[in-house]
Structure formats: structure tokens, C-alpha cells
Design a protein around this nucleic acid. Structure first.
Length: 323
DNA sequence: AAATGTCTCAACCGCAAATAG
DNA sequence: CCTATTTGCGGTTGAGACATT
């Protein structure tokens, strides 16, 4: 992905240079490295907001909307990249079942994830399963499938992962990034309040002491840090463990640790119970009527496999009166 | 190896709400 | 209040990567 991104950036360096005659017009399309620099440097000095004037003051030929989007979805320091973790998947499914396509609201409870990313996840992964089931993503059938099959299975996998980590294994289900995808992870507070710290992994640059970004000051340095870092985003939403390296020294992104205070009641307030535990308890209850799912559920070979499995589970649930 | 299909995700669009003047 | 501008949101698109035939 980052290769694709860098290719796109490189391609656009050429576009940028060859389109000097168009500089008076507003630019559209993928952002160039130069544009990213301008935006990052300007925001590091002046802060964000007033996007239209920011765009012109920063010397960008972009709409304010485009600048805002680029910053929020890509350049700001606390943007978290990499695979959506199991915990995050569970949270997305849970929150979507409460709020529907309220992506920005859902994103508030996934530190570092953008509404765009969650929306993309939903469309590419979740809706794909609905398509495989040949049912509407909003249908009761699909909602039941999520609730009775998908989410319990996620809990099962989360527990399996945590069990393996608690027995001394260094494996983790959280976003494991490749060296090319590495980035400087700062806490949300640091990222928000200290504009000298910028995430520009994809550029291969980091901040100079002045907070300005220059190619000359660039190098990617990731300091291993231990301990938990509190994340605050409107309301307290989670703790992130800065686990930077696997045993094989590949870079590891932060782990969201589900905490009891992280969960929400139907009004969006925080619950005082551990969601993972409650799902676990609930799963234990229904597990009597649910056969233990093999990974075939998660690695469906064909539409027919998925449908057959699904039909079998549904029939068993109906027979047992669970619906 | 080439053609075709599928997936991913950054960026755009239109609209509505919020804010400024 | 009213109007203009800005901000934020959700839906959609399309380029490039990847997989399959």
C-alpha cells in the first residue's frame, strides 16, 4: 500500500513540475510531496483551521476542503495506519449496529482511525460478506449473521490472541506494519499539542528541531517505548500500548487495549462493563447451540461455502429456538 | 505473458449544519 | 434576522495494486 502511495507521489512530482502553467488553477487529485510539506509546515507553525485562508497562506493551490481532508485523513500525527485489528473490527461492528453509517461518530471511539478508513473497511470487508450472503447489508438476516456468527468469532479470536500473548508469546493481533509502513507513533496528546511532532513516514522525513520539515533533516527514527499511553479524544476511548517492535524487529503499531471504561451505552455514554467480557459471557451462553466455528468461516473459499455454512448455523439456531 | 477481474483506499462531490459578518 | 462562508459528514469514484484466468 505504501509502495502504491509512494509510486503515486513520485508520479505526481512529475505532474506537479510539468504543470507549472496550470499553477494559477486549483489543483486536484493526489497530493504531492511538496504540497504535503507546505501543509505540514504551515500547520506546525500556525495550527489548523480556517482552511480556505490556510490553503492560500500556505501557498497551496488547493481548496480548503482538500487541505482539511488531507490533514485529517493522512498527515496529522496521530493517524494510525495498518490493518484494522480484531478489537477494532469488533468495535466497528458493535458501534455500527448502534449508530449505522455514522462514520465520524464511530471513528471517535477508534483512536487514530479516520471516518474514511472505517467507511472503507465497512464497504470493502463487511459489505463484501453481505454480498456473499446475497443479502442486503441492512437486512435482519445479515445483522443476525454479524451478531451471532461474526462478533462471537471475533471475540473468540481476540481471546485466543490474548491467551497466546499472556503465555509469553510475543505475537499480537494488532496492526503489524512493515518497515516501509513504519511511522513515528506519538500519543494523541503529543500529536495534538505538540505540532513539532509530525507523522510523515511515507515521506521518509521527520521534523527538524524547529518543527519545520525539510528533506535535509529527514530520516526515520522510531524509538522503542514501553508502557501505556492514555489516549483522549473527546471522551476517553482507550489505551494504547506503544509496542513498536516484534521479536523479529519488525515494527508493530500501537495496540488498543479494550478497557472497561471504553464502552458505550445506547445513548453513546460509556459503559462500566468490559465489552469483551460481556461478549465473552454472551458467547459462552450461546455457544451451547453454536458449534465451534473453524477458520473456514473466516477463510471462505467460495460463495457456496459461505452460504452453506451460514444456512447450517441459521437452521441450528432456529431449531434450538435461539432466534 | 497478457488480459481481465477484483480489491483497496485516497480524494472528490453534494449537501447540511455551524459560524461569521 | 439574513446572507455568505466555512466546516463536517456520508456517499461515490477511479487509479493502481493484486489475483485469477
Amino acid at each position: 500500500m505504501d509502495d502504491k502511495r509512494s509510486l503515486m507521489i513520485n508520479k505526481n512530482i512529475g505532474d506537479f513540475e510539468s504543470n507549472v502553467e496550470e499553477e494559477m488553477d486549483l489543483r486536484r487529485g493526489p497530493w504531492t510531496v511538496e504540497e504535503d510539506f507546505k501543509l505540514i509546515n504551515y500547520i506546525s507553525t500556525h495550527g489548523e483551521g480556517r482552511w480556505n485562508s490556510l490553503s492560500s497562506c500556505a501557498g497551496l493551490k488547493r481548496t480548503g476542503k482538500s487541505c482539511r481532508l488531507r490533514w485529517l485523513n493522512y498527515l496529522r500525527p496521530d493517524v494510525r495506519r495498518g490493518n484494522i485489528t480484531l478489537e477494532e473490527q469488533l468495535l466497528i461492528l458493535e458501534l455500527h449496529s448502534r449508530w449505522g453509517n455514522r462514520w465520524s461518530k464511530i471513528a471517535q471511539y477508534l483512536p487514530g482511525r479516520t471516518d474514511n478508513e472505517i467507511k472503507n473497511y465497512w464497504r470493502t470487508r463487511v459489505q463484501k460478506h453481505a454480498k456473499q450472503l446475497r443479502c442486503d447489508v441492512n437486512s435482519q438476516q445479515f445483522k443476525d449473521t454479524m451478531r451471532y456468527l461474526w462478533m462471537p468469532r471475533l471475540v473468540e479470536r481476540i481471546q485466543a490472541a490474548s491467551a497466546s500473548t499472556s503465555t509469553g508469546s510475543a505475537t499480537t493481533s494488532s496492526c503489524v506494519t512493515t518497515p516501509s509502513d513504519q511511522f513515528m507513533m506519538t500519543s494523541y496528546d503529543e500529536g495534538l499539542n505538540n505540532n513539532n511532532s509530525t507523522n510523515m513516514d511515507h515521506l521518509g522525513f521527520m521534523s527538524s528541531p524547529s518543527g519545520h520539515v525539510t528533506p535535509e533533516t529527514s530520516s526515520v527514527v522510531v524509538s522503542p517505548t514501553s508502557g501505556l499511553t492514555e489516549y483522549h479524544m473527546g471522551s476517553e476511548v482507550g489505551k494504547v500500548e506503544n509496542s513498536y517492535y516484534n521479536q523479529d524487529e519488525s515494527l508493530v503499531g500501537p495496540q488498543i487495549m479494550l478497557q472497561p471504561q471504553n464502552y458505550l451505552d445506547d445513548n453513546g455514554g460509556l459503559l462500566n462493563e468490559d465489552l469483551t467480557q460481556s461478549y465473552h459471557n454472551w458467547f459462552e451462553n450461546v455457544n451451547g447451540v453454536l458449534p465451534s466455528y473453524s477458520d473456514s468461516f473466516w477463510n471462505i473459499g467460495s460463495d457456496e461455502d459461505f452460504w452453506l455454512l451460514h444456512q447450517q448455523q441459521q437452521q441450528q439456531l432456529v431449531n434450538d429456538g435461539s432466534f
